[in-house]
Design a protein around this nucleic acid. Structure first.
Lengths: 389, 389
DNA sequence: GTCATTACGTTCAGGCACTGAACTAATAAG
DNA sequence: CTTATTAGTTCAGTGCCTGAACGTAATGAC
């Protein structure tokens, strides 16, 4: 019962995804090359591609020049007029929105500042709906469809229901964001996800890494884990809660989660600022750039502890790369060495440590990418939806 | 290229696995009930079942009694004469072997004691080959086929190659066990796996839990992780190395891995015995059963630290259950409370803590089960192999 | 005992997706 | 202009699933 019975449609779906994946990986491929790469017959590739073109997912370019004899191939690529992903990020002090095409290009982008702490969900979600409407209008103006909507929130999102369980930094609890947004915009297909998870998706998009953890230090410490080119969410969707791993077993500070000595109490943004004796990240970086002793030591200390916690994650999950995001990306020049040192001590296999390729709106991009990715993973379902109208 | 193109055969495979899974889950089902449960047409179920019966994977029982009118259904179940899994466990001081049928029943079993520490791989593997031959003979005598062989080793096994990288407690490095065993027995299809992983598979078989971690404390501390009814191995196959998570950040004892303050140095078997001031686990349990203060305190201390480390794993991976195995299963009555207490402090969601259902040869059973499971997951491939002869 | 009823399992034409071979299309080189 | 070469399409053929009709086997009312 849990698995659907397979039929011809299953074959079609799988092959559509296979072909589309190959087109995405190598823009400009010909049908003949696709047949060779996928192992499908040329005839099959042609029909699959025809369906993808009809659904506007793939676009056929001009015949390509070739060296030597033979008919010229017409290059296939993801269509810039294909379905777009719309991503919204509900940050603690901003809302971000992105409209992203199938290839990952940003078509529309907006960030609105504003403290969302302890504002009622209904108020914030009305603003979110406004952003979505603006992005939808932008899509309509460009003549493209919105294929799916993603919303990133800094909190625990239940996998099955999509319910936001709790977002400590917003002061929210038990909010059905998908429903609220759908009610306000009239749009379905709203997927809600954790901010750290979706930021990892954005990172995956930009780096192409198949397996990594992305840690970002903001008010909390979140980890988004990508394994085998897919987000690892855990059984209920709560995976990646690195902030409350124990790093000071005895005598640690009390954490807002109730336990003592959590990673967050040592390597969280606030803790680092306190240890360095500064008021803001800007102050901290200025001090660091002048090699101010206490500041460097504070960051190094946090880095060692962060590295130790990451080593635990890596030993348990066997992930070969770490991406530093958010505040950690800003501090990367001073954080990198101590993190690497701690990892080197505790992990047998080599681990890469990288700096995030994103600034602020990683999660918004990730939310949009996730929506796009849902289509890429099952283009045939989307094509069917299009055909139904 | 990474994914195979789909065809009719794909449909057949998927449906064969679907039907077989349903038969395994509800022994005695009728074809009609299978059709209702799977969503397949009755005709399809019939042909799929016919193939499974022809391959001896499924057996058709006597027509069943029914209350009320109507033709009686013939109950379908996993055939006791179907392919068996053969599992061998290379322990530090024993070799264990099991022959297991599709339903999980043990058909043949043998344990041979003997210290394998620092014995050359070739010597031990010759003994392993002897065990395999004995089990194969037992299978032949019973008129059943060996469908696959699994070997469990206490060390790091590379996912892709099946190579044993290092087994510290055996003193082995870089051994191609599959090849060595194949050379000595003439049998192919030898899969090598980590002992903790395969013990978790055995646990999964017996408990039916879909998601859990099984920790066992022996000389090292290993964790086998099952997520969504499948083993979680990590990218390279090294997941579950819980023993070297840091639990004493400053001033911890030096671990044999080179780092300080690993979980193993506090909650490993040796560490517990030392803290309790006894020489063996038997001594320890006698003291515990008389509520000897130092012994109880030593185990409770180890339990708290183990629980803290597990809390980290759970926060990062979102697993809802922990199974205590190996030495931890023996100490479970005294370990349970402190582990639960530590988990309660650090994990928001409820976590179940269970005692392993297995004694010594969990890994051997898991290795056999893994071999069987490979057939269950793709019975059509097995049927084809049978048909080819 | 007979017959209507009920449910299980099989048979068979029909549809759908992929395949391979033959075919058309387009291009460069001689 | 012809030949060689590569791209893409057409079409009969095959395999698997489906749904309806049918055969089969049992129950229970008369």
């Amino acid at each position: 019962m849990s698995v659907e019975p397979a039929g011809q449609h299953t074959v079609r779906r799988l092959n559509a995804a296979l072909v589309l994946g190959e087109i995405a990986a190598t823009p400009g491929v010909s049908r003949a090359a696709l047949a060779a790469r996928t192992g499908l017959a040329k005839a099959t590739v042609s029909t699959v591609v025809d369906r993808l073109v009809a659904a506007r997912i793939v676009a056929e370019g001009e015949p390509m020049r070739r060296a030597g004899p033979g008919r010229r191939a017409s290059g296939l690529a993801l269509s810039p007029l294909g379905p777009h992903g719309l991503g919204v990020e509900i940050g603690v002090d901003y809302l971000a929105c992105q409209l992203v095409d199938l290839a990952g290009a940003v078509r529309f982008q907006r960030i609105t500042a504003g403290d969302n702490r302890n504002r009622k969900p209904s108020v914030v979600l009305t603003a979110v709906a406004r952003l979505i409407k603006a992005a939808t209008r932008a899509a309509a103006d460009a003549g493209v469809r919105v294929g799916g909507i993603g919303v990133a929130v800094p909190g625990l999102v239940e996998q099955d229901t999509g319910l936001l369980r709790v977002a400590p930094n917003l002061g929210w609890q038990e909010v059905d964001i998908a429903r609220e947004v759908a009610e306000r915009t009239g749009l379905e297909r709203v997927e809600v996800g954790n901010e750290a998870d979706l930021a990892a998706v954005a990172e995956w998009r930009r780096t192409g890494l198949a397996d990594f953890v992305r840690v970002s230090g903001e008010i909390g410490i979140g980890a988004g884990i990508v394994l085998d080119n897919a987000l690892f969410r855990g059984v209920r969707g709560f995976a990646g809660e690195l902030g409350h791993v124990s790093v000071v077993p005895v005598g640690g500070d009390r954490c807002r989660c109730g336990a003592d000595g959590c990673l967050e109490t040592v390597a969280g943004q606030e803790a680092i600022l306190r240890a360095a004796g500064v008021a803001s990240i800007e102050d901290l970086t200025t001090r660091l750039s002048t090699s101010d002793g206490p500041a460097v030591a504070a960051v190094a200390g946090a880095g060692r502890v962060l590295g130790t916690a990451l080593a635990g994650l890596i030993n348990v999950m066997d992930v070969p790369a770490v991406v530093l995001g958010g505040t950690y990306a800003v501090l990367e020049p001073w954080l990198r060495e101590p993190v690497l040192a701690a990892l080197g001590e505790r992990v047998a296999e080599p681990v890469e440590v990288l700096r995030s390729a994103w600034d602020t709106d990683a999660a918004a991009h990730g939310a949009a990418t996730a929506a796009v990715q849902a289509i890429m993973a099952d283009p045939d379902a989307f094509a069917e939806r299009v055909a139904d109208q």
